[in-house]
């Protein structure tokens, strides 16, 4: 089980829900970042060699290697394209968001 901040059910924070002090459960997310993208990385699984360089250099940590191939969490990918540039085999292409 991977530890990471996760998106919770959307709710309005009422007076009672607002904590008494400025401390709160770590890693509590209420929104995603997918709307930021104009282009998206697309992994060609046939070309991907699972070298993990894209995973290592992703500023948002949205790439994981599953079954030896890069997998992107599009909820949080901002489409910067660093992964595509870093990929030596050229397995990640950038495609326009529609």
């Amino acid at each position: 089980m991977i530890i990471k901040p996760t998106v919770r059910e959307k709710k309005i924070f009422s007076f009672q829900d607002v904590p008494e002090d400025t401390s709160f459960e770590a890693g509590y997310l209420v929104s995603v970042n997918s709307g930021w993208r104009s282009i998206r990385p697309v992994v060609n699984a046939g070309t991907c060699i699972g070298c993990m360089q894209c995973y290592l250099y992703c500023p948002d940590g949205v790439i994981s290697i599953q079954n030896g191939k890069a997998v992107i969490d599009y909820d949080f990918c901002k489409g910067c394209g660093i992964c595509s540039k870093i990929c030596k085999p050229g397995a990640i292409g950038m495609e326009r968001e529609r």
Partner: peptide, 27 residues
């Protein structure tokens, strides 16, 4: 409970926007 805790991690001393900031101040 207002503490950093290995067993129960916290994010502390955060920002709060106009929708909740005044509630913190009222409290």
């Amino acid at each position: 409970e207002n503490k950093l805790d290995p067993e129960n991690p916290k994010n502390m001393a955060f920002s709060a926007g106009p929708d909740t900031n005044y509630i913190f101040k009222y409290k």
